[in-house]
C-alpha cells in the first residue's frame, strides 16, 4: 500500500468511525446482548446460569407468561389489522382525492398532517380525558341525543382497545394520506389524462392504473404499520396504564415487555431472562413480517 492509499484509508476511518461507534454501541451491541441474555437465568441485573432456550419455552408455555404473552400478541394483531383496514385505506382514499385536486385539497393536506407532529404522549393524555365517562365524547353523544351510546370507553373491556386504536388513527391518518399523495403525484399525468380521454371511470382509473403503480409505497406503509403495531406502548401507558387495563384487555407486547423488564408480569421483581426473550421475539417478528411484506409486494410490482 502506498502513501496515497494509506492517506485515503485514514480519511475514510476519520469520517465513518464516530458514527459507527455510536451505532455499534447503542444499536448492534444491544441486539447481540439481547440474544445472549435471553439464554441465561437472571438475578436482578446479574446473569446466573446458562439455561438455553428455557426462557422462551417458559414464555410460550408457562403460566402466567403464556397467557399474558398470547393475550398481548393478539392485541398487537388487532392493532395491525385495524390500522391497515381503517387508517391506511382511508389514507389511500384521502391521498387519491388530494392528488386529483379535490376542491380545498391544499387546506386538507395541511390540516390532516397537524396531529402527526404531536407526541403520542400528549395525544394519549388529551384523548384519555375526552374519553373519560364525564369527558367530551360522552358529552357530545348526550348533546346529539345519543345517550344510549355513552360508555366508559377506556374502562370497559370490549371498547378499550378499539378506543385507543381510534385515537391512534386520529393522530396518524395524515401520514399515509400524504405518503400516498406523493406516490400518486409521481404517476405520470399522461397516463391519467389518456385513460380519462378514453372514458375510463373513476373506479377503474384508480384500481387499474393508479393502484398498481403505487404498490411500492403501499409496501412501505405496510412495513411501517407492522413496526408501529409492534411498538405500541405510549398509547396504552397514557390511556389505560402500564398494566393494559381493564383486566389486561389493552395489554400489548410493548407494555408486557416493559413490565417484565422493570417490574414483573404479575407484580414481582424484574425478570431479565424472560424480558430478553420477549425482546428477541419482537426483533424476529419485526424482521420476518417486514420481509414477507416486501416479498409479497415485489411479486405484484408493476414497472412503467
Amino acid at each position: 500500500m502506498d502513501v496515497k492509499q494509506l492517506r485515503k484509508a485514514a480519511w475514510i476511518i476519520f469520517f465513518v468511525t464516530p458514527g459507527l461507534m455510536i451505532v455499534g454501541v447503542f444499536i448492534l451491541l444491544p441486539l447481540f446482548m439481547s440474544l445472549y441474555n435471553s439464554l441465561f437465568s437472571w438475578n436482578q441485573l446479574l446473569p446466573v446460569e446458562f439455561v438455553g432456550l428455557e426462557n422462551f419455552s417458559r414464555l410460550f408455555t408457562k403460566y402466567p407468561y403464556q397467557q399474558r404473552f398470547l393475550n398481548a400478541l393478539q392485541n398487537n394483531l388487532i392493532w395491525f389489522l385495524s390500522t391497515m383496514v381503517l387508517q391506511n385505506s382511508v389514507g389511500l382514499l384521502f391521498g387519491y382525492l388530494m392528488s386529483r385536486s379535490i376542491p380545498g385539497y391544499q387546506a386538507f393536506k395541511r390540516i390532516f398532517f397537524i396531529p402527526v407532529l404531536f407526541s403520542i404522549i400528549a395525544v394519549g393524555f388529551l384523548w384519555g380525558l375526552y374519553l373519560k365517562p364525564s369527558g367530551l365524547v360522552n358529552n357530545f353523544l348526550g348533546l346529539v341525543g345519543l345517550e344510549s351510546l355513552q360508555h366508559a370507553w377506556l374502562g370497559e373491556e370490549r371498547f378499550a382497545t378499539m378506543a385507543i386504536i381510534m385515537v391512534n388513527i386520529w393522530r396518524w391518518v395524515g401520514f399515509p394520506s400524504l405518503v400516498f399523495l406523493a406516490a400518486i403525484d409521481n404517476v405520470p399525468t399522461e397516463c391519467l389524462e389518456a385513460a380519462h380521454l378514453d372514458g375510463v371511470g373513476e373506479w377503474k382509473l384508480f384500481w387499474k392504473i393508479v393502484f398498481p403503480l403505487i404498490i411500492p409505497s403501499i409496501t412501505i406503509i405496510t412495513v411501517l404499520t407492522v413496526i408501529g403495531s409492534l411498538n405500541v406502548f405510549e398509547q396504552i401507558y397514557t390511556m389505560t396504564g402500564l398494566d393494559g387495563g381493564p383486566n389486561y384487555s389493552t395489554d400489548t407486547i410493548g407494555t408486557l415487555f416493559y413490565r417484565t423488564a422493570f417490574g414483573s408480569v404479575d407484580a414481582g421483581s424484574p425478570e431479565i431472562g424472560i424480558g430478553s426473550a420477549i425482546g428477541v421475539v419482537i426483533y424476529i417478528l419485526t424482521f420476518l413480517i417486514s420481509l414477507i411484506s416486501i416479498r409479497f409486494s415485489r411479486n405484484r410490482e408493476v414497472q412503467l
Binding site: I27, L29, M33, N231, F257, Y258, A261, I282, Y283
Partner: peptide
C-alpha cells in the same frame, strides 16, 4: 426496533 433492546 430500538425499544426492544431496552434491557441491554
Amino acid at each position: 426496533p430500538l425499544k426492544a433492546a431496552i434491557i441491554p
